[in-house]
Design a protein around this nucleic acid. Structure first.
Lengths: 150, 150
DNA sequence: CCATATTGCTTGTGCACGCAACTATTGGGG
DNA sequence: CCCCAATAGTTGCGTGCACAAGCAATATGG
């Protein structure tokens, strides 16, 4: 949040923060309740699901989900504990490790994805007109030069 | 994040998440480095600065900054420790407590506000056209029925 | 080749937050 | 008046994350 007399146009920033906090809180609680999965865990599974061979090096994955390497280590630890992900030594580079989705991981991901995406749609995606979608895509690209919209 | 074949229009959701994570990380690091203040702490000071008599009950404040009561208790503890906020017993209702900004709090807030708002402007506000500001204000209002834009 | 720097990941530690349980205060029926 | 449900806030505890340091494997320069 920030100071905001009406003319300063900080309202859109405040709204941005508030919408994010509110949606993440609701969607996180929903995902937790229905699938026993955290948003961060789901993010990891999304990235793996879309990756070739459904696996990524830890560093690539950390970058994709915007966690530090240490944070990702712990998160992958938990996912390994639940059997959703496995660690596979990288053959070309002995320092590196793949995080790879297991069969069970795919199953749980598909289930969680259905619910979670539905929640995202009703709360966000379906509230936007096509023009707003286009405008937002353009805006995000401007705000994040390194962001490749897919 | 969510699955996103191009036609599903989930890109704008992904971008939303990524922009938020990225901006909050950068702005938080900047505020931490320059003013030794956390975004959450700043949010509290904003709310107090705008409140009548620069004070709010704990519950009102918790609601305003989207924290649980316990989270706010600890955050206010830290701010009291730094001398930016003080607790004042509510005279009408013995159960309630005001969090009130101190003189030092106002000083630190003004300094932090200058820097932080500048960062928000360059990274977000000034990147938007007037039309985009209007569109976002409308969008946030639609996504958060209980949100009063100011 | 060997010494050194760099890279990739993990571990030690600390902090911020939420949930559930607790204390204190209030206000409304008997 | 007194009791008790409701309300405001705090505290015990667990969790998830970041930062810094550490360890193993790979480049690089003499």
């Amino acid at each position: 949040m920030t100071t905001s007399s009406p003319a300063t146009r900080l309202g859109s920033w405040r709204g941005f923060l508030r919408v994010h906090a509110s949606l993440i809180r609701d969607l996180g609680a929903e995902l937790e309740a229905s699938e026993g999965m955290t948003i961060s865990a789901f993010d990891v599974l999304v990235q793996l699901a879309e990756a070739p061979k459904q696996r990524l090096r830890m560093a690539e994955l950390a970058d994709a989900v915007l966690l530090t390497p240490s944070g990702l280590t712990r998160l992958v630890d938990r996912l390994v504990g639940e059997g959703l992900v496995e660690r596979i030594k990288c053959e070309d580079d002995g320092r590196s490790t793949y995080a790879a989705m297991t069969r069970e991981g795919r199953r749980r991901f598909r289930a969680a994805s259905r619910r979670h995406v539905a929640g995202v749609r009703t709360r966000f995606v379906d509230q936007l007109t096509p023009a707003e979608h286009d405008a937002l895509d353009a805006l995000w690209a401007r705000l994040l030069p390194q962001w490749k919209a897919r």
